[in-house]
């Protein structure tokens, strides 16, 4: 991820990074799960195996993003990059859903 060697990372701006990871990280995991769900034609029913596997995918990805979001240089950058990724992936998801159905 974007790290400049000039300014060392620190935990001081943890809140802005962590909140970006929590909110946009969760949005991102849903978008990814949604795209995978469309690709495998999941109906996302709690009783179905694909629905359950997608459900398990979400906390796993979310925790991973939460762990990684501190590598952003600043909180602002975390919000910007994760936000942009959200827009792109949700866009992909809605486009795919519209074409599939």
């Amino acid at each position: 991820m974007s790290v400049s060697s000039a300014k060392p990372l620190s935990s001081r701006n943890w809140f802005s990074k962590a909140s970006a990871g929590s909110v946009f990280g969760l949005g991102l995991t849903f978008a990814i799960a949604g795209i995978i769900g469309l690709l495998i034609h999941s109906d996302a029913m709690p009783m179905s195996a694909s629905g359950q596997l997608l459900m398990w995918l979400i906390p796993t990805l979310w925790i991973a993003i939460l762990g990684a979001c501190f590598m952003f240089r600043s909180g602002l950058r975390a919000w910007a990059v994760l936000g942009a990724l959200n827009i792109v992936l949700w866009g992909v998801f809605f486009t795919m859903r519209a074409t599939f159905s």
């Binding site: 949604g34 999941s42 109906d43 996302a44 629905g51 459900m55 398990w56 906390p59 859903r97 159905s101």
Partner: peptide
């Protein structure tokens, strides 16, 4: 991971259903 699942599986399923639920008409 499983504890997060146990805590939040209901809302997660609800969002999943909102996202993918429509496609069940096809299947």
């Amino acid at each position: 991971i499983s504890s997060v699942v146990f805590a939040f599986h209901e809302p997660i399923f609800a969002v999943e259903h909102w996202m993918l639920g429509k496609s069940s008409a096809l299947h």
